[in-house]
Design a protein around this nucleic acid. Sequence first.
DNA 1: AATGAATGAGTTTTCATTCAT
DNA 2: AATGAATGAAAACTCATTCAT
Lengths: 197, 197, 197, 197
Amino acid sequence: MIDKKAERRAQILACARNVFARRGYHAAKIDEIVEAAGVARGTFYLYFDDKRAIFAELVDRFLARLHLSIQRIDVEGDIVAQVKSNARAVITLFLQDHAMTKILLTDAPGLDAEFDRKLLAIYEEMLEYLVSSLEEGQSVGIVGPGDARIFAFLTVGAIKELLQQAVRRDFGEDRAEWLADQVYAFLSSGYLRIPPR
Amino acid sequence: MIDKKAERRAQILACARNVFARRGYHAAKIDEIVEAAGVARGTFYLYFDDKRAIFAELVDRFLARLHLSIQRIDVEGDIVAQVKSNARAVITLFLQDHAMTKILLTDAPGLDAEFDRKLLAIYEEMLEYLVSSLEEGQSVGIVGPGDARIFAFLTVGAIKELLQQAVRRDFGEDRAEWLADQVYAFLSSGYLRIPPR
Amino acid sequence: MIDKKAERRAQILACARNVFARRGYHAAKIDEIVEAAGVARGTFYLYFDDKRAIFAELVDRFLARLHLSIQRIDVEGDIVAQVKSNARAVITLFLQDHAMTKILLTDAPGLDAEFDRKLLAIYEEMLEYLVSSLEEGQSVGIVGPGDARIFAFLTVGAIKELLQQAVRRDFGEDRAEWLADQVYAFLSSGYLRIPPR
Amino acid sequence: MIDKKAERRAQILACARNVFARRGYHAAKIDEIVEAAGVARGTFYLYFDDKRAIFAELVDRFLARLHLSIQRIDVEGDIVAQVKSNARAVITLFLQDHAMTKILLTDAPGLDAEFDRKLLAIYEEMLEYLVSSLEEGQSVGIVGPGDARIFAFLTVGAIKELLQQAVRRDFGEDRAEWLADQVYAFLSSGYLRIPPR
DNA sequence: AATGAATGAGTTTTCATTCAT
DNA sequence: AATGAATGAAAACTCATTCAT
């Protein structure tokens, strides 16, 4: 009984997530969210300031989980295993929540200037981590030569697209391991093998 | 006088493109477009059915140019040169039109179900071409082993992200060559070089 | 225990008075009243029918006190003293309760048609008393010639404005005497002294 | 044809004035205003920012006219005539527009903090003019001794009340002269004539 | 062809009041 | 009696689209 409020909040949050994923941010109407949650219009506003706020909370919560799922790489340990483990963790997280994957990758960017700024800040933070990891990798010889930032963009983009397609094709989280392997293979040796003419 | 109509149409189209890029589809108001184009509100509807139609036309036109910029690869010829040439052409096209890049990559997806379907169809078509190219490449040994479709997703995603970041960072088309080289290097040999333990 | 209810009722009433005075009727939210009173939302409705009812009760109670503070003038006695005494009593009452002064003079009129009717009835009653007093005064020669009703309007309006300004300027009830003297002077001889040309 | 917009604007303004006067600010709904004006909901917002804005404009315009109707008194000239002329002009203005009289005197004060501030500033300005006139009058002996500010409050309040009652009783502007005379009489010699005991 | 005033459907949001606990 | 979560009617406001001139 103590957590009735928290439960109700979570329930609305979950329903909103589904509606946002199904319709997209703009086409999602408060009416549809409250109907899905089985509560009255006013109840929604009891728990959330407005439509933007509930959307932001969904994104924030997911980003927090994303943050936690990424482990810093210890160059003293088994690099391959750690890279794969990170890839697997991130991919699993997204495959566990198709709705949030769609929301984060297609609805969140471009919502409005302020939201974009916030999102960009988080994105840049993660990117910087990737860039510095790549640079460190280059200095110890496990990352090939090239512009680390460009590599980071390409890497992130590749994984984002893979996740969107995986969700579209309804991949379960059981495929995370396999996808991580594919990504690893892709990142480690590419696929173009031009024979000498 | 015969082309006065076409000119005015083109002018509205160009202004709409800028407004869409600056504000995003939903925040872009017809008011802002007609003001930018210097025409009356009603005039807009003489040339376009509705807001969605002008947006679709912008996207369609750009997709057509994108289509044209991609050359089928002749396996008898210089593969490397053709791959690089394709990459350079696509990247140049996007870098020439930052507004359309933003529109196509962040606004177009997720607009509404029907638009998404259309976009997806085109996307799938290009993807199929890429997949069949990769499979053909695998059969002649110039593409490494692995799931060709996954490779295609990763490739497309990597380039999409690169383009978005290039636009955000205001890269001119003079950087297309360099970016194409980076992509080529990335696709050909990846960057992870795990030394044997 | 018998008076617990009455106490709580009085407490809510007092808090509502302050909120109404601070915010005005429409801007005063039930939420703010119950928070100020330290009771739950539902509790409010155990003691009062609705928002309008508590407001009406505040006004009614104050009007009752106002009614009581006015003494009928005995023409056999000291007229000046009685007029001044009445003025002092009324002014003191208002200065003792700045909140109710604000509520009665700026919020109560114009609330809604029904409330206005009620208020007007009370107002008319007092006015009639004033008119008949003035007419009686005219018949015994202590009130100058003129339309007694107009005099009554002017008198009431002058005092109303004075009270509003006194409240705005935070006058304490210690100034009641002085203000009553000013009013008396004003009513008795006006201020315009036009010299013969 | 040139002033179609201005006409439509004036028409909405006039209808809004009547609705505000009939219902009061809060009970007046945009729907009722547009229905009275015979225009669509959206048309209202084409001409006015919001409900508050149209109300503010009504008040501002009336206050401007009020300002213009007051003539500075020239002490070299016929004081009585000038005082009466001012009183007549102000009273006539209000009697010409019963709706605005009601709006200005009962709805405008207490609307919201910001509006109140603006109103108070204008009120204070007029009051200062009256106070300085009274003080000047005292220095030349045509105004009796006493606190000029208190006299000003009493004067303004007396007239405000008179106007409200005149409107309630549907006085036409033909009564302005007579009312001005009554006010003059009231201000010049009061009405209390206490005989020595 | 061009204009821009007018439209009104569609949404969000507020807040007094109710009612199960 | 008290609570406070839930309710939903009511209102303001936006903006794509239409249409008379």
